[in-house]
Design a protein around this nucleic acid. Sequence first.
DNA 1: ATCAATTATGTTGTCAGACTATTTGACCTG
DNA 2: CAGGTCAAATAGTCTGACAACATAATTGAT
Lengths: 242, 242
Amino acid sequence: MVAARRSRPAHSSLAQRLGVAIVTGRHPPGGLLPGEIEFAESFGVSRSVIREALRTLAAKGLVESRPKTGTRVRDRRDWNLLDPELLGWMFEGAPSLPFVRSLFQLRLIVEPAAAEIAAARRSARQLSAMGHALETMAEHGLASEIGRAADHQFHALILEATDNELLVSLSASIAAAVRWTTFFKYRHEKQPRNPMPEHHALFEAIANADTPGARDATLKLVHQAQLDTEAAIKLGERRSKE
Amino acid sequence: MVAARRSRPAHSSLAQRLGVAIVTGRHPPGGLLPGEIEFAESFGVSRSVIREALRTLAAKGLVESRPKTGTRVRDRRDWNLLDPELLGWMFEGAPSLPFVRSLFQLRLIVEPAAAEIAAARRSARQLSAMGHALETMAEHGLASEIGRAADHQFHALILEATDNELLVSLSASIAAAVRWTTFFKYRHEKQPRNPMPEHHALFEAIANADTPGARDATLKLVHQAQLDTEAAIKLGERRSKE
DNA sequence: ATCAATTATGTTGTCAGACTATTTGACCTG
DNA sequence: CAGGTCAAATAGTCTGACAACATAATTGAT
């Protein structure tokens, strides 16, 4: 028996397995999945479980089912790439460098603009919460779970201060991916650069309602994260070739 | 009567009904949904149908099911607002002005930046396709279905030219909402301003690889769309009060 | 009396099998 | 050759039962 995951419903873990299998390239787009009965038997589950898993995938744009035809993997451009779960599945495999570049390009577009808005609109309470998160982050460092949580908290607070729920939602999607890149960075490389100076600069700019400063600080911050992450990825690829 | 779609599966239309009911505020966040058996009977369907519909909603972050507790509507910040279907459901009701503002703020952040990238990277083939779409758009106008399709095509081509699949996915999500705002504009107002001059300016900038020009043209274009849309919304609200 | 362990209880989760509806493709028929 | 008809395959739906789980109530020990 395979160490039974901490009691996640079968349809949920199956959805994840199938989702990962699809985004990593097995079951290529346009391809047909096995029929439900056969598929269910191959996983040792009932048809209902398979069907509910497929509903989950269909909701994310990964597959499409029709009578007589079967269930087909949809074209990649129909996928809901900004779905947090889906984004997480992408990083279960080894994400391609182009994809990581796309991700950071999006961050470089969205986050500086968001910081600019946040600098103009943040409330006093939000500001103090940011300060607190920053202290926690400085104290524990990004190598610890607590430090990373504080980092996310800090960035989440900035997005929240924009008072734009679509920006918040977008950031939540990206956060899942960023979490992975951070983990990846610290896994393949000894201590990277200290990120605190940039964070403090960003915080200062937001505190002073300095919108160009906030944009600039975020730009630098994300750009540095990109450099570190890409270096780590290339290092990882080189190692895995041996 | 809206000409009953050609027999969508019951679980699919139910998911839409429930999704709309949730995003429009019935079934408030934190609230508990009826039990599956009771719920199924109230809709005259079997439990499997309800369950599959709920899996669809759960995949979009709208609800969360646990044994004994029941199925609960998740907090609004957990919703996957960038999901195209979900965005469509938001516009089934009357979207609030703040939400529309959030949408345009996001557009004002993403689309100018995307146009800038597209101006630098577009291929000759993509450029000619844009030109063709623009001609079709000019010929038919935004009041016709063909014209609107050409408009979307034009903007989709720009996003595609960025060669960033996350940007493309984001645009696909936004497009559903934009489609509604366009429809709304032309429903409540006689012919608004002619949007072609801005479109041509944008096209010219992309053709000349003029990145600042492309950014600027897009900025103006989206901004004008925002003004027109908000005017139409306010007009609609005033009318509905009578 | 307080807290921990234990036992109820209600809800989602899973299973099995049968039947229906829809779509596609082949096969007739004109 | 065109058109309609028929057959087959698959997802879609239904039913009813039982299992697993999380919460609440209850009991027991200290």
